[in-house]
Simulated assay, not measured.
Amino acid sequence: MLRRELITVRNTLTSDDVREAAASLARRALELPELARARTVAAYVSVGSEPGTLTLLDALRARGVRVLLPALLPDNDLDWGAYAGEGSLARVQHGGGMALFEPTGARLGPGAVTQADVVLLPGLAVDAHGMRLGRGGGSYDRVLSRLEHAGAHPALVVLLYDAEVVDRVPAEAHDRPVHAVVTPSAVRRFGRG
C-alpha cells in the first residue's frame, strides 16, 4: 500500500518539478565525500517521475569516474555496462510494460557491481533507520546480497524526493540499510557497518 501511495504522489509531479529536483539532487550528491573519492560508481538511469539521475551521471563522467549502469536480465537480476554519455543508452521494453534506459555497450556481468566504490540505489522511500523501500522486484536485493557475499563494502546511497524520507518502511530479515539518502534539500546519513 505504501508503494502505491508513493508512486501516486510521484505521478503528480510535473516535468518541471522532476527537472528542478534532478538539478538539486546532482548538486547535493556531488558534494558527498564518497562520490568525490569514487573511481567507480554503480548507478541507474531514472525513468518517468523518479528523481532524475542523468545530470549526476554526466557530472560524474566529466570528473573521470567510471559509471556502471544496470541492464535487467530475464530473471530480474542485473548485468552491468559502462555509461558513455546519453547517446550510449537504449530504451529497452521489459515485461509488464516497464521500459528502462540501459547501456548499449559490452556487458560486464552481474559481478561488476562489486568493483564500485559507491552504489546509487533507486527507491521509493527510506526510513529513519536507513531501510530502503524499493519497487518490489528484488533486483537490488540481489545486488546487495552479491556485494555482501563478495566482501565488497561500497557506500550505499539512495536518491529521493524530500517527502520520501519517512519514519518507517516495511523491512524483511534480508533487507540491509543504506548509508545515506540524498534529497533535493538535504543529505541524511545512517551508520555504516
Rank of each mutant, 00 (worst) to 15 (best):
A173H: 15
T8G: 13
G134N: 03
T55N: 04
G134L: 00
V169T: 10
S49D: 13
G130R: 05
G193P: 01
P154T: 01
H174N: 08
A163N: 00
L2T: 10
E5T: 13
G97W: 11
M1E: 15
G85S: 11
P74H: 05
V118K: 01
G95E: 15
D127M: 04
A116R: 00
G87E: 08
S46K: 05
L57T: 06
V41E: 10
V18G: 04
A90T: 12
A71F: 13
Y161F: 12
L124N: 03
L54G: 01
T8Y: 04
R135S: 07
V113L: 04
A82Y: 14
L2S: 09
H94G: 07
G95K: 13
G137S: 03
N76Q: 12
F101M: 13
V158K: 01
E148W: 09
P33V: 13
V118C: 03
L68F: 03
L144H: 04
Q115F: 06
R188T: 00
A155D: 12
L32C: 04
S88W: 09
D175R: 08
L6E: 04
V41S: 11
L6A: 14
L78D: 03
P170K: 02
E34F: 01
M98C: 08
A84V: 11
L56P: 09
T14C: 09
R63F: 06
E5R: 11
G136F: 01
L72M: 15
S15C: 14
R146A: 14
L69E: 08
L35I: 13
D17V: 06
R135Q: 12
A43M: 01
L6M: 10
S24L: 14
R176L: 12
N76G: 08
V41Q: 14
